[in-house]
Computed example of a mutant assay.
Amino acid sequence: MFNHFVRALIDWAFRRRSVGLTLIRIGLPLIGLVLVGLTVGVTIPTADGPFVFSWDSAGGGSALLSWSVFIVVTFIVLLGAALIIRDVHREGRQKVIVIEARGLRDWQGEALEKAVPALVKGRREQVMVDVRQGLVDGQIVSPEVAIRRLSSIPDDISRRCAGLDRADISFVLGGLAPVPLLFLLGVIVDDESHTLIMDWDRTRRMWRPLDEEDDGKRFTVVGLDVVSSGTTRVALCVSASYDVLDADVRQVEPTALIVRMELEGRSTASHWSEHKQQQLAQQFLDVVMALARRGVTDIALFLAAPASISLRFGTVYDKRNLPQVELNQFEQADPKKYPWAVRMPVAGLTQAQLIQR
């Protein structure tokens, strides 16, 4: 606890702007001037001869004035120190839970916890979810193990958040894992608390916040208007990086109506704007809500998207009021193309379920 207080104090001194720090910066030089004894003299030439103004803190009324200044600036410095201690103590109550999903074989990258920006206030606690067991040639052959590990996260989060005010808790999410597992992680954490989503930059080989400008490109929605009232199952194909092909979808959903969301100018590097992702997530949510209003109760979701978008879509998916959703895993080398899927714990389902084909 003491070490955290020292680190937080250093943050305040060198990286943060605060009222308390400003007061100290103003007060300390004034105290120094009073203590060393300041003599000020100003001569202004006038028509009647020079006008001389001088003040010597060492004598007479000036001494009284110096002591008055000293008392005032000392109070300012003490007030500043009290404000800093208050803020550091308040920050000490805050906790940042950093959840990283690792699903790549031979991962040698930096831990997400070390890349969290300094502006995210609070004690860091890392939750590492390693889903690499069951990997064969880069493919997960035992997704049930990964699902079981992810399903234990709510209990872990509850333990870490016990006794804390919700306002003092924030989350940082990131990971490199199959899309269904990232979406599931987003569903588990949801967006009820402040959540920062980060992504791995494969070019720079580093974790990054979503700090680029919004290019204004959004999803084009196709097929929603043909979903008639009473349709219960729909295949929702979201192409945010690669293309989701109808021919692949038809192997596992031969009869379901297909609704497509296709991101204009999509690529594997068109997702680095926080504002853009928020808008894309809102579009996704709007389409799902529109399907629900038409009576759809089951959504087969086919999502081709970067990790951060997969996480974000999971965080915005309402567990209680939206249709049941199963997210399909794409495997290029598999003849089925979508050999397994995860049925999400929403719409009354308490635990995620694996659909193995």
Rank of each mutant, 00 (worst) to 15 (best):
V222M: 13
D190H: 11
H194P: 15
I169E: 02
H194F: 15
D156Q: 06
H194T: 15
R160C: 07
R205I: 12
K217T: 12
P154L: 02
R166C: 14
L164P: 03
E192P: 08
D165E: 06
I147L: 00
S170E: 07
S142F: 09
I157C: 01
I147Y: 00
E144D: 11
G175S: 05
D211Q: 15
V189L: 06
S193W: 14
G216N: 10
M206F: 14
C161N: 09
F171C: 06
G186Y: 02
V221F: 07
D215G: 06
S193T: 15
S152D: 08
G175D: 03
G186N: 02
L164K: 05
L181Q: 01
P178S: 06
D215K: 08
V145A: 01
I153T: 00
I197M: 13
V179T: 07
W207C: 14
R149T: 00
T203L: 14
A167T: 13
D165R: 07
R148N: 04
D211H: 14
R205K: 10
G175W: 01
S142G: 09
D211Y: 12
S142M: 11
S152E: 08
D191S: 12
L150V: 00
I188N: 01
D190C: 10
A162G: 05
E213M: 14
S142R: 11
D214K: 12
V172Q: 02
A146H: 01
P209A: 14
V172A: 04
I147W: 00
E213A: 13
P143D: 03
S152L: 08
K217W: 11
G175R: 02
A177D: 06
F171G: 06
G186S: 03
P143R: 02
V179S: 07
T203N: 14
R202F: 15
P143Q: 03
P178R: 05
V172W: 02
R205F: 09
V145C: 00
V187P: 03
V221N: 09
I197R: 11
D156R: 04
L182P: 05
E144R: 10
A162L: 06
G175T: 04
V179P: 07
L185H: 03
D156Y: 03
M206I: 14
P154D: 00
V187A: 02
L184W: 02
F171E: 02
E144T: 11
V189Q: 04
I188W: 01
V145G: 00
L150E: 00
S158N: 09
S158G: 08
P178L: 06
E192F: 13
W207M: 11
G163I: 04
D215C: 07
S193D: 14
I197E: 09
L181M: 06
V189S: 04
D191L: 13
R208T: 15
W200V: 10
I147F: 01
P180K: 05
P178W: 04
